Amino acid sequence: MTEYKLVVVGAGGVGKSALTIQLIQNHFVDEYDPTIEDSYRKQVVIDGETCLLDILDTAGQEEYSAMRDQYMRTGEGFLCVFAINNTKSFEDIHHYREQIKRVKDSEDVPMVLVGNKCDLPSRTVDTKQAQDLARSYGIPFIETSAKTRQGVDDAFYTLVREIRKHKEKMSKDGKKKKKKSKTKCVIM
């Protein structure tokens, strides 16, 4: 069974824990209790493949930012979460993405942009803004509501699919490099 290491990042209060708990335990946590770091595991079937999701729910508070490099190193894919009623959390996505790329030393890291709290009427981040940002990053965008469960499975499952595509691409690139290195030079 394939294991996928997913990391949920975003500013404090955007609903990272609520999304994760909704996926794992099928219930909505409405009281806000700032996370330092929590880890969850769940076995699911995605596109006919049974897999184990190892999900790291991270601290959004700035005082825990020193811990970010460590979990970013171990993560295979990242859910970059903002709240649709919090423009600052949307603007912060850029910083999370840049930090992930720096730590992973790669421009090509599996990510999904997630606009959470889409059940709320007080939207300050337009869907088109988020779609445009995701398009500019070359990553999928999904709106979710941890409260109603809308888009929750889709967000995590899409990230797994992005990781699969990335692994497939990397193995193809690896095979191309191996083929090239088999060419021999004969000096007579």
Rank of each mutant, 00 (worst) to 15 (best):
Y40G: 14
Q61D: 13
L23Y: 11
V8T: 00
K16A: 10
G10C: 01
D38S: 10
S39K: 09
A59T: 14
S39R: 10
E49C: 03
S17G: 10
A11R: 01
I36M: 09
Y4Q: 08
Q25A: 06
L52I: 14
A18L: 04
D33N: 09
G10P: 00
A59S: 14
L19H: 12
P34C: 12
I55P: 09
G10R: 00
N26D: 12
Y64Q: 15
G60Q: 02
R41I: 04
C51R: 05
D54I: 03
V8R: 00
L56D: 14
S17V: 00
D57V: 15
A11K: 01
V7G: 02
T35C: 06
Q25I: 01
C51H: 05
D33G: 10
L19D: 03
E31H: 07
V45P: 06
Y4T: 07
K42C: 04
E49D: 08
S39D: 11
A11F: 13
D33T: 09
D54H: 14
E3L: 04
Q61W: 05
Y40M: 12
G13I: 10
D47R: 02
G60D: 13
I24R: 13
D30G: 08
A59W: 05
E63V: 02
I21R: 15
E37W: 04
H27D: 09
S39C: 07
G60H: 10
T35P: 05
T50N: 07
E49T: 09
D33I: 08
V7K: 02
V14R: 00
S39A: 07
I36W: 06
L19T: 14
G60E: 13
K5F: 01
N26S: 08
K16M: 02
S17Q: 11
T35D: 15
K42F: 07
Q22P: 15
F28G: 11
V7Q: 04
I46G: 04
N26L: 02
S17I: 02
V8P: 00
K42S: 09
E31Q: 08
Q25G: 08
Q43D: 12
G10Y: 01
T50C: 08
D30S: 08
A18M: 09
G48V: 02
I21W: 15
F28A: 09
G13R: 05
I46P: 03
Y4M: 03
Q22G: 12
I21Y: 15
V8S: 01
V44R: 05
G12H: 03
E63N: 13
G48E: 08
E37P: 05
I21S: 15
A18N: 05
V45E: 08
A59V: 09
G60Y: 04
T50A: 09
K5R: 11
L6F: 10
E63I: 01
T35Q: 05
D30M: 03
G12C: 06
Y32V: 12
G10H: 00
V7W: 11
D57P: 03
K5I: 01
Y40I: 08
S17W: 02
E3R: 12
V9P: 00
K5N: 12
V14Y: 00
Y4I: 13
V7H: 06
Q22V: 01
I24Y: 06
D38K: 05
D54M: 01
Y64W: 08
I46Y: 05
H27S: 10
V44I: 06
Y4V: 04
Q43S: 09
L53K: 01
T35G: 13
I24K: 14
Q22R: 09
L23P: 15
I46L: 07
Y64T: 15
E3V: 10
Q22W: 07
Q22T: 03
S17R: 08
G15C: 00
F28W: 06
E62K: 04
E37G: 12
L19S: 13
S17T: 06
D47G: 07
L52Y: 13
G12P: 11
Q43N: 09
P34E: 14
R41T: 10
L53G: 04
V14A: 09
V8F: 02
Q22K: 12
E63W: 01
V14C: 12
L23Q: 14
Y32W: 09
G48Y: 03
S39V: 08
L56S: 14
V7A: 06
L53E: 05
D54Y: 03
N26E: 05
Q43T: 09
G48I: 01
T2K: 14
V44T: 09
G15T: 00
G48S: 05
D57F: 15
L23M: 13
E49L: 01
A11L: 14
L23K: 14
L6E: 00
R41V: 04
G60C: 06
I55K: 06
T35V: 06
L52M: 14
L19I: 07
V45I: 12
V14S: 10
V8I: 11
A18W: 04
G48W: 01
I46A: 06
E31A: 09
T2L: 04
D54T: 14
Y4R: 10
D33R: 08
L53V: 11
S17A: 02
P34L: 06
V9C: 09
V9R: 00
Q25W: 02
E31K: 11
E63Q: 06
T2D: 12
V9G: 01
S39F: 04
D38Q: 03
V29I: 13
H27M: 11
G13F: 08
L53T: 08
I21Q: 15
V9T: 00
G48A: 03
Q61E: 13
T58A: 10
P34A: 11
I21A: 15
V29S: 12
Y64L: 07
K42T: 08
Y40R: 13
Y32N: 14
D38C: 10
F28K: 08
V7E: 03
E49W: 01
Q22D: 13
T20Y: 05
D30I: 10
G10I: 00
V8L: 07
V14G: 09
E3H: 11
T50L: 03
K16C: 08
G13L: 08
E62S: 11
Y32C: 13
D33V: 09
Q22L: 01
E3P: 15
V7I: 03
I36A: 09
K5A: 01
E3W: 01
V29R: 12
Q43M: 03
G60I: 01
G48N: 08
L53W: 07
Y40D: 11
D30Y: 04
E63C: 03
G12S: 08
E37M: 02
Y40H: 12
L53Y: 02
E62V: 09
A18G: 12
Q61K: 05
K5P: 05
G13E: 09
Q25N: 04
I24W: 06
I21K: 15
E31R: 07
D47K: 02
T58N: 10
I55V: 13
D33M: 10
L19E: 06
V14N: 04
Q61M: 07
D57I: 15
V29N: 13
G15R: 00
Q61T: 14
N26P: 09
V7F: 06
D54A: 03
E31P: 10
E3N: 02
Q22Y: 02
G15L: 00
I36P: 15
G13Y: 03
Q61N: 08
V45C: 13
L56C: 15
T58V: 12
K16W: 01
S39H: 11
Q43A: 06
V29E: 13
L52R: 12
E37I: 10
V7N: 04
Y40C: 14
H27A: 13
Q43K: 14
I21M: 14
V14L: 06
P34Y: 03
T50H: 09
V9Y: 02
F28I: 14
T58L: 08
Y64K: 15
L6D: 00
S17K: 06
I36V: 12
V45G: 11
V8C: 04
Y40P: 10
I55W: 07
Q43L: 04
D33F: 07
T2Y: 02
F28E: 11
I46S: 05
G10F: 00
L56W: 11
C51N: 09
L56Y: 14
D38Y: 09
D47S: 04
V8Y: 01
Y32L: 09
D33E: 13
R41L: 06
L52C: 13
D57C: 13
Q22M: 02
D47W: 01
V44L: 09
E37C: 08
Q22I: 00
Y64F: 12
D30N: 11
F28R: 09
P34I: 04
T2I: 03
A11W: 02
D47N: 11
L23E: 14
D33Q: 09
T50I: 03
A18P: 02
F28N: 07
C51G: 07
S17P: 00
G60M: 06
L19W: 02
D57W: 13
L23C: 13
A11V: 10
R41H: 09
G13H: 03
Q43I: 04
H27K: 11
K16Q: 01
L53I: 12
L6A: 01
P34H: 06
E31V: 10
Q43C: 09
F28T: 05
I24P: 15
D47A: 06
T35S: 11
I55Y: 07
T35L: 02
G12Y: 05
Q43P: 09
A59L: 03
K5S: 05
K42R: 06
